[in-house]
Amino acid sequence: MSIALRGVGLAHANGKVALENIDLEVSPGERVAIIGPSGAGKTTLLRLLATSLQPTRGEFDLLQHNPWRLAASQRQRLRARIGLIHQAPPLPPRQRVVTAVLAGKLGQWSVAKGLLNLLHPLDASAAQAALARLDIADKLYQRCDQLSGGQLQRVGIARVLYQAPELILADEPVSAMDPVLAGHTLAVLNREAAERGMTLLASLHAVDLALAHFPRVIGIRDGRIAFDLPTEQVQPAQLQALYANEQLQATPSSPVQPQPTHIPRC
């Protein structure tokens, strides 16, 4: 199993319960989308899987290890086998794209190699190849603060592709992209994961993207798993129940003439 959670719960320090009684098994090479309303616990679940949050209850196995029973140095080695894609990639604004991408392998490199790479990029061609898969190879030597939000997200994805981990955890990886680009990028990510046998878990707020690109979909609501099904078995009623909100009434706004729009690739 890539991931095995049994009865996992997580309560924040202020007592607020973020996740409750999560049972989840993901096999190596599986590709899973996590959907659910805002505040349901999607990001918390991914942070828990990334070992940046510690579960307060339950059993948690990650790549055949319980990360919280490992010594800190062994946990760092385990983390090097996991790739994280952040919604807003935390890249220093002044860092060059090539350095930011090559930083993906810092967990696998020695300290000396890491520091040397800071002075002179040691593997620029591989970084360029990773960027090329996302159509931004021309940004290789630009600074991160010169990129748009969507471009930064693609740099974050390129960093994880270069890292070549066994498990990819992606938190809203395409939220800053237009719909066409988002679909294209998710397709690239899924293809890469499938070709290299990497396990992929991605949280998405766009249900159609989740259904279109992933073979398995997990719905989360109020910190619990609402459903966990192969994509073709997900019923519209389940999706409606997942996003149902008693407080918000959808008031129809004034009808807008649909305009044919050309969506530029950012």
């Binding site: 990334a50 940046s52 760092q76 086998r81 935390p90 993906g104 810092l106 967990g107 890491g114």
Partner: peptide
């Protein structure tokens, strides 16, 4: 923190994550 979460040591995390800023 992102470097630490992908397995990097404290030293490289400082040099890649903090120093550029």
């Amino acid at each position: 923190d992102a470097i630490r979460e992908s397995g990097g040591g404290r030293m490289v995390a400082f040099c890649y994550g903090t120093l550029p800023g």
